[in-house]
């Protein structure tokens, strides 16, 4: 009658478990490259003040090619822009902007999208129909059209970008969560919770949501990359963060007229944003690969 005994695992702290999941990611080369890129930019953003050779908004020497020596020592590694600001320093400080508003907007979008998705998927019926219809209406706007209209109406500011991203992304998140919930709610442990009379909110939050976290983490990584692109595009279209604070998209927009003669001004911000988005996309791919193996 006795079952075979295996070694007893100790209770794991959640930090330890998080570290273990990262260790799992080691098995995906793609994921590790992504993680490295993301970490690189996070460190740059954190220590921008220490790392940047010049103040980001200081006018020093206009239109200098990469590698030129600065007048009072130091070097413009990536050159300067049309009004003489050091591009490297601006990229470093720009990373900070992107890595504050990108995740912030994503978190906001999730905190709206997840409850909507849970309600639509679990409660079903009319709730589902109404929520799904709202989601469909919002999703039927081409994304950028929606952003342009929202920002043009409410004005360009950091907060408004967060609001616009939340508004535009929450329906997509809702759909994903809804799909996951529809799958999970027919599981027997959910049925068991129902038969012991658990209230619906508890079933959604405790029984269902934790089991949807895998796909949601992958989606969050992808979405973060996309939000970063969006912030960049808005900056590029002149609807982003107001100048003069460095914003990668804005930097490209301001300098693209002269990009034919001085390509370095637009080129480096382009590489910066592309690499950061690539980092998140690769990380998401790695996470997906690892989670499928489990």
């Amino acid at each position: 009658m006795s079952e075979q005994t295996i070694e007893i695992p100790r209770r794991e702290s959640s930090i330890l478990r998080a570290i273990k999941s990262v260790a799992l990611l080691r098995e995906s080369a793609v994921g590790m490259v992504g993680l490295a890129i993301v970490l690189f930019w996070v460190l740059v953003a954190l220590f921008a003040d220490l790392l940047a050779p010049f103040p980001p908004n200081a006018t020093i020497m206009p239109l200098v090619m990469p590698g030129t020596e600065a007048p009072d020592g130091g070097m413009f590694l990536l050159g300067t822009d049309h009004i003489g600001r050091d591009i490297l320093s601006r990229i470093m400080h720009g990373a900070r902007q992107v890595l504050i508003y990108g995740p912030l907007a994503t978190v906001c979008a999730y905190s709206v999208g997840i409850p909507m998705g849970l309600a639509a998927g679990y409660v079903g019926g009319l709730t589902d129909e109404v929520l799904s219809f709202i989601a469909n209406v919002i999703l039927s706007f081409p994304v950028l059209v929606l952003y342009v209209i929202i920002i043009a109406t409410i004005g360009a500011s950091a907060v408004n970008i967060v609001i616009a991203v939340t508004f535009a992304s929450a329906p997509g998140i809702m759909r994903i969560v809804r799909g996951l919930v529809l799958d999970l709610r027919s599981r027997e442990y959910v049925f068991a919770a129902q038969t012991r009379g658990e209230p619906p909110w508890r079933i959604m939050a405790v029984e269902i949501l934790p089991n949807a976290r895998g796909p949601l983490i992958v989606d969050a990584c992808l979405r973060l990359g996309y939000v970063i692109i969006t912030i960049g595009v808005l900056g590029f279209l002149g609807l982003g963060l107001p100048p003069p604070d460095p914003d990668w998209g804005g930097m490209i927009n301001e300098t693209r007229q002269m990009a034919m003669a001085f390509p370095h001004m637009a080129l480096f911000p382009c590489l910066a944003i592309s690499s950061l988005v690539l980092g998140f996309n690769l990380l998401a791919d790695g996470l997906r690969e690892v989670s499928l193996r489990d």
Binding site: R187, E188, Y189, F191, A192, T195, R196, E207, N211, R213
Partner: peptide, 16 residues
């Protein structure tokens, strides 16, 4: 009145 379910892979919540 309680229940024992059919599918062992489904009967317990994998997250807890």
């Amino acid at each position: 009145v309680q229940m024992v379910f059919q599918n062992p892979f489904d009967t317990l919540n994998p997250s807890h």
